[in-house]
Design a protein around this nucleic acid. Structure first.
Lengths: 268, 268
DNA sequence: GTGTGCGTTGCGATGTGCGCAACAAGTATT
DNA sequence: AATACTTGTTGCGCACATCGCAACGCACAC
């Protein structure tokens, strides 16, 4: 307020995205939301929300049910999303994940590093599972998950320390308050092991009773762009976690090859 | 310029979407675009484009390659869309099913793969038929129904074999003891035909006297997420099953487009 | 050296979004 | 029926964010 030297703010964009993010929350996605409720949840003036939503609707970013006057996400968002790099990767990866599911009979995920979290792009579940649906589009903390560690595993140690320090500052563990992140040296040792054997395994570090393995996906440039993850209750997968890791790694290597990766193309 | 009586414009949003739309163009999607080129294509000041893109990037709507300084679409679009795809489907499908009902005068269903069966999310019947209470919430075995076969139809043959094997183990045909599942080679041939002509048809395989056609629904990721099915007594629909299939396919394509599916999103 | 291309930044004038308050329309309460 | 609630939209003045120009930093070419 006093001496902001230059405030490169884009208030409108942030407001619009807050609204869209709210519409995307799973608990609202099915029903839709009205103006007043959105304004209340966001702590904004309903007049602003009304005008913003009208604009969003006229641009196709939100749809409105003419009867109930409730808003939901619009067609244009989906059209745009189809063109992202993530969509292409997801599409290529789907058959590989299905093969892994057929082999292991456990749910598999395709994950990427997004900002300060691990974003799940795609989940594929075996026949006996209730339903995937849970994790797509959701982010989980990086350092406690096998997928997150794999995604960090080609970084230099000092880069990693710096990243981890800033991550700790900005990530107050929303939703998982009891979890404490691992200390950095432990993480570095884990990552060294990941590089050695090619895949990561975690045993109840992220969720009690849950184990998981992950292996990296590389593209033609040689860097890690994504991870394939398998997660399951410890009772089912705990006994043969190592074998699951090797199979995951094998599938990840095939997908990497499909993306143009050659093992000698390692990054600098 | 002179007397805009009331201008409820949201210039910022429009500008941002113009930029995103440009980044989404297939010819740029792989390469990325620089600030000057975007400004030129849009006829805007490059300073504005620079600032707008900085904001978009900070919100995750655009990604920037630090080397080439080129922008492309960001992860957040994908994350927003992925979380709501399912809810959006159930909400959007109803009018399309009704249109199909109006055209064919037969009951139509919206089906998804859930667990080891085909779950019907929504049924729409013509006025003369019994209302409701038909199939919503009910699951039927995958391999004997046209909807089930459609839902499997973008899987690779070996994945399909593995899936089918585990399905046979865990699905003792509850409720339909006299039905024997088709052998796998037959199923593979059927699926090959589905891929070729775009829809599936079954003739009394699931229930004596019952015929049905199904066509796939794809979302912005390109994968099959649901199927539209038309089922009817053979006496009524059997004569023009092929035409019904083509009409179902046409409606399914429209719905897929509404969900953000672009045909060129298909894998090779 | 000077030429081009790129992307970023300072700054004043302009125009847009902000927030209050009034309004319209619908639904429950008496 | 009249009232008191909803919920969503709109008018309007002021403040401030954005626009567009111009200058700048930087890289590369010749």
């Amino acid at each position: 307020m006093t001496d902001r030297p230059r405030a490169p703010v884009s208030a409108g964009l942030r407001r619009d995205l807050e609204i869209l993010e709210l519409l995307a929350r799973p608990e609202h996605a099915s029903g839709g939301l009205g103006v007043s409720r959105i304004a209340e949840l966001l702590g904004r003036e309903k007049s602003q929300v009304s005008r913003a939503l009208k604009a969003l609707e006229s641009e196709g970013m939100a749809d409105r049910d003419p009867e109930s006057l409730e808003y939901r996400l619009g067609w244009r968002l989906y059209a745009l999303a189809a063109r992202t790099a993530e969509a292409r990767l997801t599409h290529l990866a789907a058959p590989y994940l299905r093969r892994l599911v057929a082999a292991l009979n456990e749910t598999t995920h395709l994950c990427v590093l997004r900002g300060s979290g691990v974003l799940t792009l795609l989940s594929v579940s075996p026949t006996h599972a209730f339903r995937g649906l849970g994790w797509e589009g959701v982010t989980v903390p990086v350092p406690m998950t096998s997928a997150g560690r794999v995604l960090l595993s080609d970084w230099a140690p000092d880069t990693l320390r710096a990243w981890m320090a800033s991550w700790l500052k900005e990530s107050p563990m929303p939703g998982h308050p009891r979890q404490r992140p691992p200390d950095i040296d432990y993480l570095l040792r884990e990552i060294a092991m990941i590089r050695k054997r090619g895949f990561a395994a975690v045993d109840e570090e992220f969720e009690p009773g849950l184990v998981g393995v992950s292996a990296p996906i590389r593209d033609f440039r040689g860097g890690i762009i994504a991870a394939i993850n398998v997660s399951a209750p410890k009772g089912r997968l705990g006994g043969h976690l190592d074998e699951a890791g090797r199979r995951t790694l094998a599938v990840a290597r095939e997908l990497s090859a499909k993306l143009g990766y050659h093992p000698e193309t390692r990054p600098h």
